[in-house]
Design a binder for these strands. Structure first.
Ligand SMILES: [Mn+2]
Ligand SMILES: [Mn+2]
Ligand SMILES: [Mn+2]
Ligand SMILES: [Mn+2]
Lengths: 219, 219
DNA sequence: TTAATTATTTAGATTTGTCTAAATAATATT
DNA sequence: AATATTATTTAGACAAATCTAAATAATTAA
């Protein structure tokens, strides 16, 4: 099955939006891909034709087994390139997504496996997302909660759910990245803001909105 | 100036065929790009429109200054990725061209410069071709002659002019690569074949056709 | 220098991916 | 239940990149 770049992007976005078994809607996919609903409908017909999605008019889409397999391969390449850019070329985590968005379309089993090996077969990308192995198998995610839900006093950052450049830049400025240890000092009930402390640094207060998007694990 | 992948491939091929100031013909370019002359004419109009080539009907093409600048950037990316694949991911030199053909289209100044730096700002790619710097400046090629012309007894391999998979695989099998030192034992007049010796190995005889495509420098 | 051959261009189609505007279906509101 | 709103699809168009077949220009050979 040979997919075009456009088809790969659709498949990956459907995978991303699917989360379990939810059906993906035309508008949601159009928004995700920054395109128009009419274009999505057009592409849906092609992907159905290629047996990569299940689709009935007005009923939304879900990936077929074959489609999910494709999606996982694309996601694997995407996340491996992100690792490469951060670990080897010292990019910061908020810069790598767009580049990986292009690099992921170089389809070569050999390149992918060599890259993975070169990086030490990493299990998680710089945003904390799991990297599928060559067979599409995902490491089960580490137990984690969002920082605003966490009750532990000492936690380590495991992922960031919103990966917008804005948030990642904010975290960068505050020196918060994957693996950073945080000590929760105080939950302020008034606006649900949280005061935290990174070792050796003065405490800072972060908003509920930010805390919701930081995933942590007790340490 | 934002080029499509197709446009980039055309520009790069024109650059490759141009060699000095020769005019590139429609058929030659069609052959190089494995496409049809009619398609080349179509694209020629677009590239002329974008001021990347000079073109008059029936008169062939040459790159403009702007076009050459673009070409050098693409060539730079291509050759840097080839270095990466060989040096870091242990690909052999005959495998890397096709992958670089895709990777070269990821346009990011930052990625390119970081990659170059990571590789130690190499001046030559795995085939011995010079890598343009960020400003498009090429290291002047090292003085070299083809092995069949060379009169020196001890030489080092600096480049391979024919980069077909067939030749590169042949050289690989004979353990001849860039930097390999060869001792010329004998020129056989009958068929212009050459007997050579790589240190620690029994002498081998190579045909005129092969010798013509191996560039060497006296050592 | 005419005729044959080769190279190049044009005309007209096709495929892929996209769009806008209009039509229709599904859902929510009164 | 009828109506308004929202979601989705269809119809028709367009740009990019390609192709085949036919026309025309340039070159070579007789
Ligand atoms: Mn992508
Ligand atoms: Mn990621
Ligand atoms: Mn290319
Ligand atoms: Mn090369």
């Amino acid at each position: 099955m040979n997919l075009s770049i456009a088809e790969e992007n659709y498949i990956k976005s459907i995978y991303k939006l699917q989360e379990g078994d939810t059906v993906v809607t035309t508008n949601a996919l159009a928004y995700e891909l920054e395109t128009k609903p009419a274009s999505v409908t057009d592409m849906a017909k092609k992907l159905k034709e290629k047996l990569l999605i299940d689709y009935e008019k007005y009923k939304g889409f879900t990936l077929t087994t074959e489609g999910r397999k494709m999606a996982l391969q694309i996601v694997r390449r995407h996340r491996l390139w992100e690792c490469f850019l951060v670990d080897k070329l010292s990019f910061s985590w908020e810069e790598v997504h767009e580049l990986a968005e292009e690099l992921e379309h170089v389809r070569s089993e050999k390149l992918t496996s060599r890259l993975s090996e070169y990086l030490g077969n990493p299990l998680f990308d710089p945003h904390g997302d799991p990297i599928p192995d060559a067979n599409g198998k995902l490491t089960k995610p580490r137990p984690q909660t969002s920082l605003d839900q966490s009750t532990a006093r000492k936690v380590v950052v495991t992922a960031v759910t919103d990966q917008s450049t804005a948030l990642l830049a904010f975290l960068n400025a505050k020196h918060i990245k994957l693996g950073t240890q945080l000590e929760v000092i105080e939950h302020y009930e008034y606006d649900n803001s949280i005061e935290i402390k990174i070792k050796q640094q003065p405490p800072i207060t972060i908003s509920e909105q930010v805390a919701k998007n930081i995933m942590v694990r007790p340490v």
